[in-house]
């Protein structure tokens, strides 16, 4: 029964991991921008929702604010940091450092406004209900999985059938050809940031109600996103999705054997094994070198 309990918790965590990681993977896969501040997008969305919630504005306003904040941050960062850097030369290093610096700024500004401790969004949805003998599941677990399913369904349709979705995949495959074809890579990149940032929002909001928020959690979000992107295979959205789910499950099921402070070690071990044994990831093309 404990295993089943942990599986459900793991799927809940994994669904949120997958959403966040796919956001990063989509941006990185199509634009090749190492968007380390993706963790900061998460923080901004989560704390905006938290703020709206404690101020009593209600659910819809909270979701709207979080979404608007996430998109605005992603687009502004792209426009005022990444684009100027790439105009000269877009080495991995410069983009990473700039993104990293912005992440530090966001973490500390949020910490100064909201405090550095944990805060939680309180909702009756996170109270566990006994659905079978000895099996307790909070409604929010189902909401997480449903959210992930809906968002991934829409994303799949978008990437497969819409004009912009096709352009995004094309940009990931061959940026030169996209330019030759007459599409504007900069506009496509902005769309990637918009979609990638939107994907963070449900995970950010739900995390606020389940695990709680902390301004420093951006690094954890980034570790998970990076791990899922690499384990899934860089450039592969389905791979990242699977890897995100698998990491959530693995962290949760590991509790059968180890104490909770070691869960991040499990993520690290999986990431490490993949880097050494299969750097191209689960579904990736061989892209390690």
């Amino acid at each position: 029964m404990l295993a089943l309990q942990l599986t459900i918790t793991g799927l809940q965590t994994g669904a949120l991991y997958a959403l966040t990681a796919v956001g990063f993977s989509l941006i990185f896969g199509s634009t090749r921008i190492f968007h380390f501040a993706h963790g900061a997008t998460f923080i901004i969305a989560a704390y905006l929702f938290y703020y709206m919630n404690v101020s009593g504005y209600g659910l819809i306003a909270g979701i709207a604010a979080a979404t608007a904040g996430a998109i605005a941050f992603g687009l502004l960062l792209n426009r005022f940091v990444y684009v100027p850097i790439q105009r000269d030369e877009g080495s991995f290093f410069t983009v990473f450092v700039a993104s990293f610096g912005i992440g530090i700024v966001v973490q500390n500004v949020v910490g100064m406004i909201f405090g550095r401790g944990y805060v939680t969004v309180s909702t009756p949805l996170s109270f566990s209900v006994e659905i079978m003998e000895g099996l307790y599941v909070a409604p929010i677990a189902w909401i997480s999985m449903l959210c992930a399913a809906v968002f991934f369904g829409i994303l799949w349709g978008f990437l497969k059938y819409s004009q912009m979705g096709k352009a995004l995949r094309a940009l990931a495959d061959n940026p030169e050809l996209v330019r030759v074809f007459g599409l504007n890579p900069r506009f496509i990149a902005a769309s990637a940031f918009t979609i990638g940032s939107i994907l963070v929002v449900p995970a950010a909001i739900i995390s606020g109600a389940t695990s709680g928020l902390n301004p420093a959690m951006g690094h954890h979000v980034m570790l998970i996103s990076l791990a899922a992107t690499i384990v899934g295979g860089i450039g592969s959205v389905p791979g990242t999705l699977l890897a995100g789910l698998a990491l959530g499950l693995a962290e949760s099921l590991a509790l059968l054997y180890v104490d909770s402070q070691w869960t991040e070690a499990v993520t690290f071990a999986i990431l490490f094994l993949f880097i050494i044994i299969r750097p191209s990831g689960l579904l990736g093309r061989s892209a390690a070198h």
Binding site: F92, I275, I276, P279
Partner: peptide, 10 residues
């Protein structure tokens, strides 16, 4: 084994 972005993660 790998390039910069992998190494940052590791």
């Amino acid at each position: 084994r790998v390039r910069g972005e992998y190494f940052v993660a590791a």
